[in-house]
Amino acid sequence: MFHLPVSARAVKFALVVAAALAASACAKNGDEAGQFGAGAGAPGSQQDFAANVGDRIFFETDSSELTPTAQATLSKQAAWLSRYANYSFTIEGHADERGTREYNFALGARRAQATHDYLVSKGISASRMRTVSYGKERPVATCDDISCWSQNRRAVTVLSGAPAS
């Protein structure tokens, strides 16, 4: 019924696999700094978070349920955020353009809340996070078909505050 887009999800999946391999390789070397992958960015940096952990999760159409892939990403986020505990962060909820503007503000808020609640369940303090929703006002992918919409149905963890020194 639902046509899985090639782009966003496939890329995401590949990234998760690569990160897992990197993590196991690093564990063997005992390279603690590389625990979350050997990609771009110094360990503990915002780039490290975005590139090696994944700063965003994706949702099905008109849904705020966390997919298994999203849960896996959020578990990694929680591990990283536990280690680099000086960061506070904002969870931005977003929707695709296939919904009305006002409903999408509420839908984006639901997605941000689902993300928030999952991170709390993984031991991250709620006092470090805030949630906002941009509805469909801030798309990252701008074509008019399903391959873009799937990238826009997202919750993004945006770091702020001082990183651990």
Binding site: S64, E102, F105, A106, A109, R110, A112, Q113, A114, S133
Partner: peptide, 9 residues
Amino acid sequence: MSLEQSGNA
């Protein structure tokens, strides 16, 4: 108006 709290509006 609508007020959103904890994902409900």
